[in-house]
Design a protein around this nucleic acid. Structure first.
Lengths: 238, 238
DNA sequence: GCAAAAGTGTTTTAGCTACACCCATGT
DNA sequence: ACATGGGTGTAGCTAAAACACTTTTGC
């Protein structure tokens, strides 16, 4: 693809996953505990090496299934960035990683899949705290993916990917509040979301959860973008 | 970074560039004519292979300098996506490309740099036309990068990267009109841009171009995002 | 004077904020 | 009854759209 034939470089490629979900109002990410060096015993993002006949997107989907037991077809999975610092892996001097943001509802059990090591949910806040450590440059990768998620909530309808097939407006509001770390005005949120074209579709059914009036159930609409965008108004945290 | 040691795969990596600029009101991209197989004689995006001691960001910057003679330090350069289809390069069965969006003012001559083949500006509209062809999957890469640029104009201040160090509000409006392919209301655009905090800063100077009242000159401000975002109202094309 | 682009003013309307208030359920 | 979350109404404000109008140059 270029004339610089003299110094081509062969490298290893991995797809690493930042799987996000909401559990009890907190943004969580799926991490595994490493059992090999380097960084044995430390927390890391799940991921794995590219194989011969697949695209990176497929690698990401496969690893998601293998390492976490989740179904990649059912959740939002998108490329975020490439990490290519020559020294990011102390062993081999060169491993390039493409990171993926995956958004999952809370339903699937956080526990491991078939051949997986132990995988578990940890709050993002804890892993991004100044003192926290993750293997490799995974803290940076996590931060970038979370930032991407925060931005996407504003202009796209991905927030529904955090919810089950049927959800209430309150569920959806919790997603925004957890990801953005703000408290939103309930009445205004309700209007904005139900008025937005193709964001949510009423199913007619209702869900009656502990305490309070039963909430109408919705499913995700066809639209992928919201215009005008959802506004992330700064207020005090819950 | 994962247990799948059995089927690791070594691959070639390139950084390919989508260098955009505005020339006489039209969005242009920098392309080179290939002189080697495959796709000899066809148009392609400039780019080149990753070397041992650099990050991909550095590869992109280096290729920009080598192939186009531009100064990478002075212009906006950002990662867009990774293309990893095993069959995207007919020769070697596996070349992974990371694409970069570069935004340049019109000033630098489009002509080639030192060791470069002939590089030239072509309108994006022409290359994305249904009948148009580009080498490899570069048409797709171009389309994705242009789409990224369109989105970024809404929420960020990158539009100034298309302009010289000093520019008029009219120059900036031309950028939006060329990239979005819409006509914007001149008075409203002026207010929106000058009122937005940190988007543009008046230099006090004026520029008197052919015909019309002299325009005040501005330079790019500190802000990186615009809130509320620039709105891309659908109207008829010029 | 006239054309052309820069820039200001003004009216109308959409949409957001804030907050009061009613609704339907469990305990 | 009352706590709890769901949902509607509404007044006030901000900013965008549309367009009339003034300003300052070249010819």
């Amino acid at each position: 693809m270029s004339p610089a034939h003299r110094s081509r470089l062969l490298t290893h490629i991995t797809a690493d996953l930042v799987v996000l979900t909401i559990r009890s109002g907190q943004l969580h990410v799926l991490v595994v505990e490493r059992d090999n060096e380097p960084f044995a015993g430390q927390l890391a993002l799940p991921g794995g090496f590219l194989r011969g006949d697949e695209t990176l997107d497929r690698t990401a989907a496969r690893e998601l299934r293998e390492e976490t037991g989740m179904d990649p077809g059912s959740l939002h999975l998108e490329q975020v960035g490439v990490y290519s610092d020559p020294d990011r892996d102390p062993r081999v001097r060169r491993v390039i990683t493409c990171s993926y943001l995956a958004i999952a509802p809370n339903l699937p059990v956080p526990t491991a899949g078939s051949d997986a090591r132990e995988a578990r949910w940890v709050t993002v806040a804890r892993l991004l705290a100044p003192r926290a450590r993750l293997a490799f440059d995974h803290k940076r990768i996590l931060a970038d993916a979370v930032e991407r998620a925060r931005e996407k909530l504003q202009f796209s309808t991905v927030a529904t990917a955090f919810c089950d097939a049927e959800f209430t407006i309150g569920d959806l509001r919790e997603v925004y509040e957890a990801v953005w770390g703000v408290e939103l005005d309930r009445p205004n949120f309700h209007r904005k979301v139900t008025d937005a074209d193709g964001f949510v579709v009423s199913t007619g059914r209702k869900r009656t959860s502990a305490g309070g009036r039963p909430a109408s159930l919705y499913r995700a609409g066809d639209a992928e973008t919201i215009s005008p965008p959802m506004m992330r108004t700064p207020r005090a945290r819950k």
